[in-house]
């Protein structure tokens, strides 16, 4: 009995510690500027006068007497994040899935598993200078597709490993049956294997998307003004009059946090596999 109570207390404590930072940001996002900081008075945990002004402000509306209207709204950064993360996911998943299938069924590219793990081992910071040099040379700096291309490479290990374990798990008999029927290997791959793998493909894509969406460092180095992503834009949000734009930043943080949390819950049962490069299944 006491054990059950202790367990409940421990879990409640963990839940509280988990939720407080998130709830604080949610609360901030709905606070008017006057409540952003506890200027002498008690801290407000729940907004006294909840408002959507922070969100309106991000999209270029109003502003108050305290803060000037933004000259650059959050619309383009959101678009940039969406475009670069989605196209990056497309690149990683296309190359990763093809390579995983090639290795799983034909044994081609035996060097890839280790090479891709190593790619993951090194800090991206340590290869960014040449990438920046090449990107400048190719005119890819500060473009969403330049960013997407790097994302595609950086998340390729996850796409590859995830799909490899999914292909390894898939029974080969169905493909063999289709081959006996006279289909070419390519047709079997596109018409039999891929449709059968629709659910794992979707899960892996969402996983890779979350990773791309979560990036900050690469966008910080490769985008400067036109195509900055949400995190870069958020960090730059401040005004000379008020300093930190707490509420607006919290509102933006909320916008950035919602997609991965929702998608993460959707693919919960694949998370362990994804995060351990397929070494562990749940």
């Amino acid at each position: 009995m006491t054990r059950a109570i202790l367990r409940t207390l421990a879990i409640l404590a963990a839940l509280a510690v988990t939720l407080i930072p998130i709830l604080w940001m949610v609360s901030m996002a709905f606070k008017p500027p006057s409540e952003w900081q506890a200027a002498g008075e008690a801290l407000t945990w729940v907004p006294r006068a909840p408002t959507l002004d922070n969100f309106r402000y991000l999209f270029g509306q109003g502003g108050s007497d305290l803060i000037a209207t933004l000259d650059r709204t959050a619309v383009k950064p959101i678009l940039s994040s969406l475009l670069s993360a989605s196209v990056g996911t497309l690149i990683a998943m296309t190359c990763g899935t093809a390579a995983a299938y090639g290795l799983s069924r034909f044994g081609s590219g035996a060097n890839l598993p280790l090479a891709l793990i190593q790619l993951r081992l090194f800090p991206p910071m340590a290869v960014m200078i040449p990438v920046m040099m090449m990107w400048a040379f190719l005119g890819l700096m500060d473009t969403w597709f330049g960013l997407a291309l790097v994302y595609g490479i950086v998340t390729l290990p996850f796409a590859f490993w995830l799909m490899k374990t999914f292909f390894d798990d898939m029974p080969k008999e169905i493909e063999e049956a289709a081959l006996v029927e006279g289909c070419t290997r390519w047709r079997v791959f596109t018409r039999v294997t891929l449709p059968m793998m629709a659910a794992p493909l979707a899960a892996a894509s969402l996983f890779v998307f979350i990773l791309n969406w979560s990036d900050y460092l690469i966008a910080l180095l490769l985008t400067t003004r036109e195509w900055v992503t949400i995190p870069v834009y958020m960090a730059s949000l401040s005004s000379s009059m008020t300093g930190q734009l707490y509420g607006a930043k919290a509102a933006l943080g909320l916008i950035a946090a919602v997609p991965p949390v929702v998608l993460g819950v959707l693919i919960q049962k694949h998370l362990v596999r994804g995060l351990t490069f397929g070494a562990l299944k749940q």
Binding site: T94, F106, R185, F189
Partner: peptide
């Protein structure tokens, strides 16, 4: 070979 072609983009 198909296997090589499939792994080429990743390589």
């Amino acid at each position: 070979k198909l296997g090589l072609r499939l792994t080429l983009p990743a390589q």
